[in-house]
């Protein structure tokens, strides 16, 4: 790259600096620095590839989430049109994962954790959203980890932060569905062993789980810092659904069919930071 250019001032100094050494003496440390240069170049290249892939994974995951927000039913398979879209995106994401998997092998997995982490969190959010829409279940860490190449670690921290953002998506899904169909999305199954669960019950239990999670020990990790912010956003999301359900019960019949509440102000606060 610019290595040739950068050599120039260093070399020149030898000549004007030490007049007694007339032969153009090169630094005895050069061979050592050449090794370092190669190592650092490799490191920067890997890092950049990972940053780029992480960004692309984030973008594709966001698109999956947008597509999934058009789904109107819970606990059944995704409509083919939407499913075709999300599968294409998911294939793109897999490609990106495969590209960077060698860069994240072994010791380098944690070395570039900060660079992959945003992509993995967004991916977890998309993955868990789809999983929830299909099965009305929270995807487990193991299930989620099994969907990425084995070189790539889906850390507990990234999982937690991704699931925090899932709450925002569930809120949006719940409110839009209520507005368009007039009822809260929930399992319609007639399984006698379990009570009929609606999405608000699920949101509340998620909220309870998050509140039960003790993260005071990770004050100086990204989990500690981010979860504090995300906890507040998550609380707001659950409350919004609670308020919407209240509204539906109190004023539901008066509301014209197809009325959609304005959700524009939520976009910025949830799911991205």
């Amino acid at each position: 790259m610019s290595g040739g250019l950068q050599d120039m001032p260093g070399m020149k100094r030898h000549h004007d600096g030490q007049p007694k050494e007339t032969d153009s003496r090169t630094s005895p440390f050069m061979p050592m620095f050449e090794v370092f240069r190669n190592e650092l170049d490799e490191h920067h290249d890997r890092r950049e590839r990972i940053i780029k892939a992480s960004r692309d994974i984030t973008a594709a995951s966001k698109k999956i989430i947008f597509s999934l927000q058009r789904v109107r039913s819970l606990g059944s398979s995704i409509p083919p049109k939407i499913s075709a879209e999300t599968q294409d995106r998911a294939a793109v994401i897999q490609q990106h994962f495969n590209t960077i998997a060698p860069d994240l092998a072994g010791i380098n997995g944690w070395r570039y954790q900060r660079q992959v982490s945003p992509g993995i969190q967004e991916y977890t959010e998309a993955l868990s959203f789809e999983h929830y829409l299909r099965h009305q279940k929270l995807i487990t860490v193991e299930e989620a980890a099994a969907t990425v190449p084995s070189n790539i670690t889906l850390t507990a921290d990234d999982y937690i932060l991704g699931i925090f953002d899932l709450v925002g998506e569930l809120m949006r899904f719940a409110i839009t569905t209520m507005a368009t169909s007039g009822s809260l999305p929930g399992s319609e199954s007639t399984d006698v062993s379990t009570e009929k669960r609606d999405i608000l019950m699920d949101l509340r239990s998620l909220r309870m789980c998050f509140h039960g999670l003790d993260t005071t020990s990770c004050k100086d990790t990204s989990l500690g810092r981010d979860s504090e912010k995300k906890m507040e956003v998550m609380n707001t999301c659950v409350e919004k659904v609670e308020a919407a359900v209240y509204g539906m019960i109190v004023r539901g019949r008066e509301r014209p069919k197809g009325w959609v509440p304005d959700l524009s102000d939520d976009r910025g606060t949830v799911g991205s930071y």
Binding site: V141, M201, D202, G212, L213, D214
Partner: peptide, 18 residues
């Protein structure tokens, strides 16, 4: 969790990792 949506083991294992 009161519902079957969330496997309680998920958050238990997250906590133990933390």
């Amino acid at each position: 969790s009161p519902s079957g949506t969330i496997d309680p083991k998920i958050f238990e294992s997250l906590q133990s990792k933390i």
